[in-house]
Design a protein around this nucleic acid. Structure first.
Lengths: 225, 225
DNA sequence: GCGCCGTAGACTGTAGGCGAAAGCCAATTC
DNA sequence: GAATTGGCTTTCGCCTACAGTCTACGGCGC
């Protein structure tokens, strides 16, 4: 039996529950790490974090466990948690994997995308270009992330999406201090990508996305001077 | 200063320490899940597991956390842990990703492999073929895993390796009850793969590996009848 | 007899505490 | 003067205890 109450099914506010503390601690710590409030190599003392966040050590421990398996912190036995220190090699390997995952996502998106999806992509692209024109870097970065996420969604592969999300987030972490945005050129490439998807040209979509992410890698390596 | 004691550096047994309890609980649970001693959908009660393993709830919880982030169990809030139930769709998506990762590994291996590595691969391949000839399925499966692991190692990309290890393990879990081995044909494909790597032919290595894992997918979908 | 409400049980989520290992610093010895 | 060793502090790993929440069952009214 469904809905004897007559209430609209989707409109119920769902009674926002606080949810498990560990999750909020996890998000808080991840935020602190990605924003560099906690610097790479820093020793994370459970007691301090717990006190600072107003909770006990237990949720903190569980959050650290998760951060460890996802590669954000290194958990040295009997010594505690340390914010992971990115190396050149690792950054490069992450970029390689990212290229791989994003390219596959583009291919699948090209195979699956409908007209409505194409419109949504182009709308996002336009908004991104507008942000660049306004020199609104934050908005441009956000739009970039949303566009890639949309492509991933269109790919319709949840496993791929989850892996890509993790890798992407870490790539951004490594990459952020270098250069926050490649700017205009990046959005031209987005246009190309959307065109390829709209044409349902899997080959071209893959190639364009690969070139796109490879450009990111290039600009990563051509920094620091 | 190194070694005033005169003890041989490498021969020291390293005093095998028990290591963190949570890790051993993790491995124990993973073993129980992959062997289907704990069936998909089953409710895992922390107290029972703790009592059964002779530890307290805490290490069990931390192990469950990790299993959750790696996709082996689903952690429903305020309700506990349940062994993840594989779906058709998810299995297919995992196989897609696996194909992707393994193919890239093959390409990188072809780019990096030295003569010694090729020899090692061929030795493994020979051993695998021997196992198949002897109808020793367990040995053949183990050898298959080791060979793929070796290719991954040759790729020299730790990030890729870690993702692939996770995905592979889950694929095996889904795939095991169906058919444990495709047998002889699989090892012919391995031979082709090694040949391509030995020739440093990245294109061919990628293609062969892709075909190889795609065959696995095919035989997965052509089951249950 | 049917359905609703209340209560009891069970399990998870969180907190606090105790023992032990690792690291650090100073005193001591060669 | 340098290395070592002993003790001390810090912090983790694990256990125990308590509070909140979900589920299931039995009683009560209709």
């Amino acid at each position: 039996m469904l809905s004897t109450t007559g209430l609209p099914q989707g409109a119920v506010p769902k009674l926002e529950r606080p949810g498990p503390l560990r999750d909020r601690v996890y998000e808080a710590l991840l935020e602190l790490i990605t924003t560099r409030a906690l610097q790479p190599g820093q020793h994370l003392v459970e007691n301090e974090l717990a006190g600072h966040l107003g909770v006990s050590r237990q949720p903190v421990r569980e959050a650290l466990q998760r951060l460890n398996t996802e590669g954000w912190v290194d958990l040295r036995p009997a010594q505690g948690a340390f914010v992971h220190e990115p190396t050149e090699e690792e950054a490069d390997q992450l970029l390689t994997v990212r290229t791989l995952l994003e390219a596959e996502a583009a291919r699948l998106a090209a195979a699956n995308a409908g007209a409505a999806a194409i419109d949504a992509l182009e709308e996002m692209c336009a908004e991104g270009e507008r942000a660049v024109a306004d020199d609104d870097v934050d908005a441009a970065v956000a739009m970039n992330a949303r566009l890639h996420a949309k492509v991933m969604e269109l790919a319709g592969n949840a496993v791929l999406a989850e892996l890509a999300a993790q890798v992407d987030r870490r790539v951004r972490w490594y990459y952020t201090p270098v250069a926050r945005q490649r700017g205009r050129q990046s959005w031209n490439e987005h246009r190309e990508l959307i065109a390829a998807i709209a044409d349902r040209d899997e080959q071209r979509a893959t190639a364009v996305m690969r070139a796109h992410t490879e450009h990111t890698r290039k600009s990563y390596h051509e920094r620091e001077k």
